[in-house]
Amino acid sequence: MKPYAVIGAFLVIGLLLPLMTVMAATLLSPRKPNPIKQDIYECGLKTVGETWVQFKVQYYIYALIFVVFDIEVVFLYPWAVAYNQLGLFALVEMLIFAGILLAGLLYAWRKGALSWV
């Protein structure tokens, strides 16, 4: 369980750090709000119409492609962990594995599934 203690500590610090920053700002900053101060500025723009809208169905294809390559990572992970104990053969094998999926990526690209709609 020892190595997980480090991950746990990382998790706790990772959660605390942004929380503390926001808390500090809330506690320390003086507040005198007025409409102009609270207005959207810089990159923000007032929204036009409803924000909870339906998005284009075509976006789903990006999610599907992403899932396939996410599963690939699950296969890459044990290979990467065991890499030091494996020879050149394993590297070639993994290249074949990635190559087959690369063909899929090429297919998606050629079909225009990667172009933004």
Binding site: Y60, L64, F97, I100, L101, G104, Y107
Partner: peptide, 21 residues
């Protein structure tokens, strides 16, 4: 099986593109 999994993922990818597009 490892390499077949790769082919399976490829089939899933192409199938998804064919059906969804």
């Amino acid at each position: 099986p490892f390499e077949v999994a790769s082919v399976l993922l490829l089939v899933a990818l192409i199938g998804a593109i064919v059906i969804a597009r």
